[in-house]
């Protein structure tokens, strides 16, 4: 029992130590499901477990928006756990992550076009679904303040009106260190 507490203490201490060395990051970027839908996301990313050799574990809470032009608008929340492989002292890393999005989509089903003005009054329907997905990516941890990332994800849309559908996306953006390094 004591050994277990000791281990937990060591992990927390390590995490704290790691958190000091590797401050949380704010990720802001472009998010493009299916390569063509347009959107953006913002995420808070923090160290989950201290770096052991080249291995790092992070967690991320992400929120975002994407749209299929003229068809739908969606918002999502996406918690995930990320593994980074990064040589000690280096900033470049390769990553893989797993998580699940909770998404809400508002889709245009039909509309009424006014022939005089050319404007359309759309009727919309909402649907809620989840998207478990895995991601692979590369990134550069902030050396002082700014870094960046590129990620590609694949998953399955579950629920909603249309049942199971493949989901893939690409994301790119900036990683902003939440604390300046001395």
């Amino acid at each position: 029992m004591q050994a277990r507490y000791f281990l937990l203490l060591m992990i927390l201490a390590g995490t704290t130590l790691q958190a000091q060395e590797q401050p949380p990051e704010l990720h802001i970027g472009y998010f493009a499901p299916f390569g063509v839908q347009i959107g953006g996301s913002v995420a808070y990313t923090d160290v989950l477990k201290q770096q052991i050799g080249a291995h790092q574990w992070w967690w991320r809470a992400q929120a975002g928006y994407f749209a299929q032009p003229n068809v739908s608008d969606a918002v999502f929340l996406h918690p995930e756990v990320e593994y980074r492989r990064c040589r000690p002292g280096q900033y470049f890393y390769a990553s893989s992550s797993i998580g699940s999005s909770l998404a809400y989509t508002l889709s245009k089903q039909e509309g009424t076009l006014n022939l005089a003005s050319g404007t359309i009054d759309y009727q919309k329907e909402g649907s809620l679904y989840i998207i478990p997905r895995i991601s692979l990516g590369i990134g550069v941890a902030p050396r002082k303040r700014l870094g960046g990332y590129l990620r590609a994800s694949y998953g399955q849309q579950l629920g909603g009106d249309n049942g199971k559908q493949a989901f893939f996306s690409a994301a790119a953006g900036l990683a902003i260190s939440m604390h300046s390094k001395p």
Binding site: V71, S107, E110, G111, T112, L113, N114, L115, A116, G118
Partner: peptide
């Protein structure tokens, strides 16, 4: 909206239902 452009008649104040 191309339908409106084809008509180009602001006088035709009618609506037409469309499907996405």
């Amino acid at each position: 909206a191309i339908l409106s452009d084809i008509l180009s008649s602001p006088d035709i104040n009618a609506d037409i239902d469309i499907i996405v």
